[in-house]
């Protein structure tokens, strides 16, 4: 299993001033896994993803992604795709221009063709030449997913990827992610939506107040909490009434 580890976090911590966002986090993800990262709002999920993608440096501990420390930016950039929590889109661009621009940043030669292909993959082919500002919320999320796939990553970091989407939108994204995972892409899926994570992920970790509180398959968590319902499992692991291990 060790040689298969593609994400390895060892005792990572990150504070913002006096507030500890992540404390002593250790977890690992194997290559090809569809890994869920659960936690309530403010638990430290986004901070963990930012440390994994190199946007933030951990105050302590080490994080390696694809065999390299996260400080090695240029090497890692070729391996990872990120759908972040930020709203960031260039609303004055068309969908095609937006993806072409990022394809260019990743050094993809046929940037326009790559953009068209990605737009078709996420179901935005018909709106390729429309301004991003005219897209619905769901379309914008799909565009952001397309941006995360522009460099054909080995590892996909997703922070609340279906947030704000209707059931059809959620379904289409989940199907796409499953297809990618079947092709060998490792997916690190961060969300507070329990049913999504339990449906998609083979293994999951639960974080609360910056600390890892549980890790394993859904069955492992059921055994640990003696609960069957997902919501009950989650509530027993997180929040003020959390049961210690």
């Amino acid at each position: 299993m060790t040689e298969n580890i593609i994400i390895d976090i060892k005792d990572a911590s990150k504070s913002y001033g006096d507030r500890a966002a992540v404390r002593g986090l250790s977890l690992s993800v194997a290559k090809g896994e569809f890994f869920g990262f659960l936690g309530p709002n403010g638990a430290g999920k986004t901070t963990t993803i930012r440390m994994l993608t190199g946007i933030l440096s951990p105050d302590a501990g080490s994080i390696t992604v694809a065999g390299k420390l996260v400080s090695d930016k240029l090497h890692r950039a070729g391996k990872i795709g990120v759908l972040s929590e930020s709203k960031g889109l260039y609303e004055w661009m068309t969908g095609k221009e937006f993806l072409s621009f990022f394809a260019g940043l990743y050094g993809i030669a046929e940037a326009d063709e790559a953009a068209e292909k990605l737009l078709a993959e996420v179901g935005l082919k018909d709106r390729a030449d429309s301004l991003v500002g005219s897209y619905s919320r769901g379309m914008k999320q799909r565009l952001k997913l397309a941006r995360a796939l522009v460099n054909e990553p080995d590892i996909l970091f997703l922070d609340e990827p279906t947030l704000g989407l209707d059931p059809q939108g959620q379904d289409s994204i989940q199907k796409l992610l499953k297809r990618l995972n079947e092709k060998g892409v490792t997916v690190f899926y961060s969300s507070h939506l329990l049913h999504e994570v339990s449906r998609l992920c083979t293994r999951m970790a639960v974080i609360d107040k910056g600390v890892l509180v549980a890790e394993g398959t859904l069955d492992d968590l059921r055994r640990r909490t003696h609960k069957d319902d997902l919501r009950d499992i989650f509530l027993s692991l997180t929040g003020p009434d959390a049961e210690p291990e």
Partner: peptide
């Protein structure tokens, strides 16, 4: 302010 900096810094752009 438009929260596009994160995507730029994640890319190979220095």
């Amino acid at each position: 302010e438009q929260e596009t900096m994160e995507d730029l810094l994640i890319s190979p752009l220095s």
